[in-house]
Amino acid sequence: MANLTWLYAKAALTGFTRRGSELPGTSPAAEVVVDPGRLARYGRVCGFGVRDELPITYPHVLGFPLQVALMTGPGFPFPLPGLVHVANRITRTRPLLVGEPLSLRVEAVDLRPHERGRQFDVVTTAAVDGEEVWVDVSTYLRRDGGVGGGSGGERGDGHGDGGRGDDERGGGRGDGGQAGGGRAGGERAGAPEPTAVWRVPADTGRRYAEVSGDRNPIHLHALTARAFGFPRAIAHGMWSKARCVAAFEGRLPDACEVDVRFKAPLALPGRVGFSTTPTGSGWRFALWSRKPHLEGLISG
């Protein structure tokens, strides 16, 4: 697997020279075996129990080095700093087990216009014995002044107060909240009644970085976050998603999809309300404080 420390340094040194209008091809496959110790640490950070079944969000962590390698490699058109992670959709055909070797592959696809720039998807797939069993689609926004209306989807600001986008690769001010490709939830007039209230400690970003490898400075300390325009460190978007999914542990269908849109950033430390609403085939869920941080949909 790629060395993430080197890749982040490479992104800082070479990113500002990147220009282009085409996405690179698919990454080589990587064979991965789950480390039970790392998985247990991930579970403690995100709220999962100890089970033989992998949390549906965990292969995203396993594929993260491949994702960064692709986005810092030859031919990638955008600098890593400033990319806004606006949505994530994970689909599995069956649960993955801790002892199963996974074959992971990553590709960047569907570069499309957005009213605030351009969007694209980073697709990570996991196969077992040649059978694709898990697919992760992360939608990113590259802000560049817009391209006139954007056929790629919905409004990019996403937050009623014009806040920053939730999860940026390397910093900068973001304003992409909703994903053009995301399908989770709809706009709400006000905060829903919480099912639970969670306190999110100040070290959440550092703890998640240790288990995920995502050491983006906007998540680690207030000092490093301020250098990129955030008054405090913010939680990783994928931590927020995992924490929500952990609340449904043991209740997800074997074959299911978990689709989220990242909204306003969750400043650390924080206090958020988690809400759920049953649907015909699953649940809608959300994280709120004064404004929405995440809205999602589980469907079977």
Rank of each mutant, 00 (worst) to 15 (best):
N3D: 14
K10Q: 15
G15L: 08
R19K: 14
E22Q: 15
L23K: 04
P24Q: 07
S27N: 04
S27G: 11
P28Y: 04
D35L: 04
P36A: 10
G37I: 01
R38P: 03
A40H: 11
G43A: 10
G47H: 02
F48G: 03
G49Y: 00
G49T: 11
D52R: 12
L54A: 01
P55W: 05
P59C: 01
V61N: 11
G63P: 15
G63A: 12
F64V: 03
P65K: 02
P65R: 04
L66P: 13
Q67V: 09
V68E: 07
A69V: 06
M71G: 01
F76T: 04
P77I: 02
L80G: 11
L83S: 01
V86L: 10
T91E: 15
R92T: 03
T93W: 08
T93G: 12
P95R: 00
L96C: 08
L97M: 12
L97W: 10
G99T: 09
L102C: 10
R105I: 09
V106T: 11
H114Q: 10
H114S: 14
E115N: 06
G117R: 05
A126I: 00
V128T: 09
E131P: 05
D136S: 15
S138V: 14
D144V: 01
G145S: 03
G145C: 03
G145Q: 02
G145N: 05
G146N: 04
G152P: 00
E154Y: 13
G156W: 13
G158A: 09
H159N: 14
H159C: 15
G165E: 00
D166V: 11
R173P: 14
G174V: 01
G174R: 04
G174T: 04
D175P: 06
G177V: 01
Q178C: 10
G181Y: 08
G185I: 07
G185Y: 11
P192A: 05
E193N: 08
T195H: 13
A196H: 14
W198F: 14
V200D: 10
V200H: 09
A202F: 00
A202S: 06
T204V: 05
E210H: 12
G213M: 05
G213N: 10
D214A: 03
P217D: 06
I218W: 08
A225P: 07
R226L: 11
F228M: 13
A233T: 07
I234M: 04
A235W: 01
H236D: 13
R243M: 05
E249Y: 01
P253S: 10
C256P: 08
D259V: 04
R261E: 14
L266G: 08
R271S: 09
F274A: 02
T276R: 14
G280D: 15
G280M: 06
W283P: 07
W283D: 13
R290S: 15
P292G: 07
L294S: 11
G296V: 01
